[in-house]
Write a protein that binds this DNA or RNA. Structure first.
Lengths: 337, 337
DNA sequence: CTGAAAGCGCTAACAA
DNA sequence: TTGTTAGCGCTTTCAG
């Protein structure tokens, strides 16, 4: 691979001049500038960014650490982050952890090993070993935590109010007359799931309805497990008249299974999703769900990391973005028993 | 950020020894080794990989250049690549181009600027300016082209036989008695779409059926455009009895629209998809589709790039992996007119 | 306006 | 077994 020295030699200038031509052309006489430009074009020279980054101690890369990059939910937030990152001269690396802590840590290590300048954390574990005696800002790279909150304080965080969102969704189901509502939850260990469950229970309680543990199934955001969960739910002697799935994907699987079972949605059973992914409007029936403002979440993430990248110390902050209930065709009035 | 020199100083050894402890511990006496290890642990030192990569001229990173990272189709191939890459000490960077040539080029530039050692190309443009006078191997980094074939020869390629796959799918529809088959294609400029269309036409021709241009709609893999295309198709005076969508996602949208229109799938109209994404079994009705062996595609990609990464010159090769027709519930016998 | 020289953090050849 | 040295490719003082 050709380097700056070869270019310099071929153009009869010093490496420093080549560098100037590339970054501060106004500092170089037109004659030399053209010589250099000519050689650069002819050879297709591209500066080795390892050298650049090493020298400048800046990579202009950010990494997003995500349990499941490709989930239809994460995509729009990534897109938003990336497009805003681009405007600010950063590029985004996608780190799909497949929920594995070792992968969370190895992506996080990219910041420590200076392969990236900052980190977006979409998982609920902080993939760093903290030293109690040091301040967070000293130990952590520029970082923003979103969607699945880490329990450590002092980090900028952005999220929706999962508890309230689930409560709103549940209240809507309740308002339709549903009294037995099944839940297909994600990973029960996960903060967002815990909060949603809490919101669900509190809505029930406010309506004077007892929470039935048998109506709760965890399906870990998997299509196959959601199918199983649905069958489980519908096998109870006292079947639910509505099912609240904590992701649209699980809701999709749920509807599909209900259909297999000869149960009509929403006539026999209503189904509520969560997220409002792009597919949800195209499900059959179109899915009633709680929309998360994914693009806004992404933009807020970028907004919060930028000052840190500029050198400002990390500061605690929590940004709750609004959710919205989207009523479509998968929910309807409860059948009279 | 702490560097190797500080570690060396703190452990009373030279930087070289620190490096040895980290990479060839057996070359260092136990005493010094422990001193160093102690300091490393205490300080949480991580080598700056910019320095390492610069020195070794190797980044152990590969980038996948993909029109749409998050499409349910691409995900499994990425997963397969990544897991195999990991086994070989490489990590995978995801470059989502959003179909923009400028983005294809900027990700490709990561190889030129030594931020990555090799490239997986899932788009149909070669994002490099070729110099006719030089050999490909001299100009291109280690590279493998998959799914959307670039027209340049000399590059290892992996794909399915799109033409045959579409032909098989069409023949199945034909065998069900369908004679008017609508097509919702992807991007008409794209090689895979052209091939699929070609396979579709040839199946029609073999059955003695004339291809009707009015029954062809392009929807560019978008849910919204597929909805429009479906409405367009069903607005013809002579409506199709089957629709072949060139992606499962478009098929999903198509089914949803048909449903809105009061048209029952598969009773009134059959719908065939393409890809066999994980969602397709959970659509309503479950989707009949052509499965692409995504994991295998991914593995083959890795297999083909490895020798290049080892220094072997790039060699022309074409690997066609088998597709498979998956019959589910969205297709049925044609209605008698 | 331009070049020489130093140095970013690391590793590997060479000497000791 | 260990340290010294040079150098990966680049940018940026500092002189001139």
């Amino acid at each position: 691979m050709i380097g700056i020295k070869e270019i310099a030699k071929a153009a009869n200038v010093s490496p420093a001049t080549v560098s100037r031509v590339l970054h501060n052309p106004e500092l170089v006489s037109e004659a030399k500038r053209n010589q250099v430009l000519e050689v650069v074009k002819r050879t297709g020279y591209t500066p080795n960014s390892l050298g650049v980054s090493l020298r400048k101690a800046k990579t202009h890369k950010l990494v997003a650490i995500i349990p499941d990059v490709i989930s239809a939910f994460n995509y729009p937030v990534i897109r938003a982050i990336e497009s805003m990152a681009l405007e600010h001269g950063y590029s985004l690396l996608l780190g799909d952890t497949q929920e594995l802590e070792c992968r969370e840590r190895s992506f996080a290590a990219m910041a420590k090993s200076r392969q990236a300048d900052g980190i977006f954390l979409f998982c609920s574990r902080l993939p760093f070993d903290l030293d109690e005696s040091l301040s967070l800002a000293e130990q952590l790279p520029p970082i923003v935590n979103a969607c699945e909150m880490v329990e450590v304080s002092g980090i900028p965080k952005v999220n929706i109010d999962n508890r309230l969102a689930a409560k709103d969704a549940t209240n809507y189901l309740l308002s339709l007359g549903h009294k037995r509502i099944g839940v297909i939850a994600g990973n029960l260990q996960t903060p967002s799931t815990i909060e949603r469950l809490d919101g669900f229970k509190s809505a029930l309680q406010a309506a004077g309805i007892h929470f039935q543990p048998e109506l709760l199934q965890a399906a870990n955001y998997s299509l196959a497990l959601a199918d199983k969960a649905t069958r489980e739910l519908m096998s109870k002697k006292d079947k639910p008249t509505a099912i609240f799935a904590f992701s649209d994907e699980m809701a999709m699987s749920c509807i599909s299974t209900l259909n297999d079972l000869g149960i009509h949605v929403p006539h026999d059973v209503s189904v509520m999703g969560f997220d409002n992914i792009s597919y949800s409007a195209y499900m059959n029936p179109a899915l009633t769900t709680v929309a998360q403002p994914m693009a806004e979440i992404g933009r807020k993430c970028m907004e919060l990391i930028l000052p840190q990248l500029e050198g400002e110390p990390m500061a605690e902050s929590l940004h709750i973005l609004p959710h919205e209930l989207i009523v479509r065709k998968s929910t309807g009035p409860a059948q009279k028993a």
